[in-house]
Design a binder for these strands. Structure first.
Length: 429
RNA sequence: GGAGAGAUGGCCGAGUGGUCUAAGGCGCACGCCUGGAAAGCGUGUACUCCGGGAGAACCGGGGUCGCGGGUUCGAAUCCCGCUCUCUCCGCCA
């Protein structure tokens, strides 16, 4: 949720941001409607405060009159307050109504994109910031996509998952399961070495938490909902981890706060189908290590760069070709100010797969969460929140399988060998 | 799932209808004292909204004692609902 102050001070900047997100001119009027409602709200508040002050004053007098034994005067004042009270009730109702409408409008305004966000409407307009300049893997004759390799080596089984649960729930087996676990441990160890506190959050969250990071109300359809308990399966560890500090006021010297966690992630992904979602390319449940930082507003873009470097380091160590893409206005998430995607080369599919998304939300999430810090000047300010995948497992596995296939089996990058306990995946395990 | 107790400021804790503008203590900050420190003494110490103001200074007002309603001229205090915590019982990896 955007800060009302920003809309009040710089409505044109907000409108320019919406234009970058390809909003139609006539829809920009929402900014003016917000400003009008805010003005109305403040006027109501001023009037209401005056009446409440009056009522408080008279009530105090009544107390004094009673103690002095002046019953009749006290009774007269009572009647006076009674009429005041009716007006107060009416004003309160109007104020609540105005506030509810204001809130609703505010929730429907996305974050203002960072100046560096390129114009554009689809992923074709995204800007490649760092392309892969090295050689792409050369595959042997008869190279196969990862879903075929999975069958050949018994790494994971989607048909089995479909029988147990439904489409999009892979069952990892044998060396495949061990590879998953190795990657998780590798990513967590790397995060810890980079100063992130390891978190094991709940996998189900309540509506307040889902609202804090912006999954509700706008991405409701993305999440699995447990109706009986009104809980949501997390689509990413970002949701519970960022909310750890919801409503907190953090001493400035504790910033930045760095947290990392491994969780399975659950996404409904309704309506997707076809060849580009085969295998592990898009599934309903996948493993991911997420890194989260809560940063000082003056330094959040340095933090973003640091997170990009961290993710780059992971991919370097895994020896995977990758490129970094800056999302354009049309592709940018609702709550994000700036997002970089990491894409790894999937040699058999001959395409780039998104394996990480690193974003700065500035105060968009923290405003909704009331996540603040206390500066050296004793004032409270909203902190900036950032997060990134480091990394999303399913597609990393897909790329590793395809890029490292040899006639003797699938080579494990040397950095992972201490974690897997084997150097190659082969039929004879 | 059943029974009971509770939720007050950064923390502990008092407070059963008006003087609560929330006692007292701890902690923290600043000052005095000291060669320096401790002790002692003094002062201060929540968040938020609205208005005034050039003002993130300051002044005035509103709201917040778990959350939401209600009773009352007036609620931390009385009533109803909810959430959470603790104790006991049941179930359980």
């Amino acid at each position: 949720m955007l800060e009302l102050n920003l809309i009040r001070r710089e409505p044109e900047k907000v409108k320019a941001g919406l234009r970058k997100r390809n909003w139609k001119e006539e829809d920009l009027a929402i900014v003016d409607r917000i400003l009008a409602l805010d003005e109305e709200r403040r006027q109501l508040q001023t009037r209401l405060d005056g009446m409440l002050a009056e009522s408080n004053r008279i009530s105090k007098e009544i107390g004094q009159l009673f103690r002095q034994g002046k019953r009749e005067e006290a009774e007269a004042r009572k009647a006076q307050v009674s009429t005041l009270k009716e007006e107060i009730k009416e004003l309160q109702a109007r104020k609540a109504e105005v506030e509810a409408r204001l809130e609703e409008l505010l929730l429907s305004v996305p974050n203002v994109p960072h100046p560096s966000v390129p114009a554009g409407s689809t992923d074709a307009d995204n800007e490649i910031c760092k392309d892969w300049t090295g050689p792409l893997p050369e595959l042997p004759q008869g190279a196969r996509p990862h879903w075929e390799l999975a069958q050949q080596y018994g790494i994971f089984d989607l048909e089995l998952g479909a029988r147990l649960t439904g489409a999009g729930f892979p069952v990892f087996r044998g060396q495949g399961a061990r590879l998953e676990r190795a990657l998780i441990n590798f990513f967590l160890d790397e995060a810890r070495a980079a100063g992130y506190e390891e978190i094991q959050p709940p996998l189900l969250v309540n509506a307040d938490t889902a609202r804090g990071t912006g999954q509700l109300p706008d991405k409701e359809g993305q999440m699995y909902h447990v109706e009986k308990d009104d809980l949501y399966l997390i689509p990413t560890a970002e949701v519970p981890i960022t909310n750890i500090y919801r409503g907190e006021i953090i001493p400035e010297e504790q910033l930045p706060i760095k947290m990392a966690g491994y969780t399975p992630c659950f996404r409904r992904e309704a309506g997707s189908y076809g060849a580009h979602v085969r295998g592990l390319n898009r599934v309903h449940q996948f493993d991911k290590v997420e890194i989260v930082q809560i940063a000082h507003p003056d330094h959040s873009y340095e933090v973003l760069d640091e997170m990009l470097a961290h993710v780059s380091g992971l991919l370097d160590k895994l020896e995977l070709p990758y490129r970094i893409v800056r999302l354009c206005g049309g592709d940018l998430g609702f709550t994000s100010a700036l997002t970089y995607d990491f894409e790894v080369w999937s040699a058999a599919q001959q395409r780039w797969l998104e394996v990480s998304s690193v974003s700065n939300f500035e105060t968009y999430q923290s405003n909704r969460m009331k996540l603040r810090f206390r500066g050296k000047d004793k004032k409270t300010r909203l902190a900036h929140t950032l997060n990134g995948s480091a990394l999303a497992l399913a597609r990393i596995v897909a790329a590793l399988l395809e890029n490292n296939q040899t006639p003797e089996g699938i080579r494990i990058p040397s950095v992972l060998v201490p974690y897997t306990g084997f150097e190659r995946i082969s039929t004879n395990r």
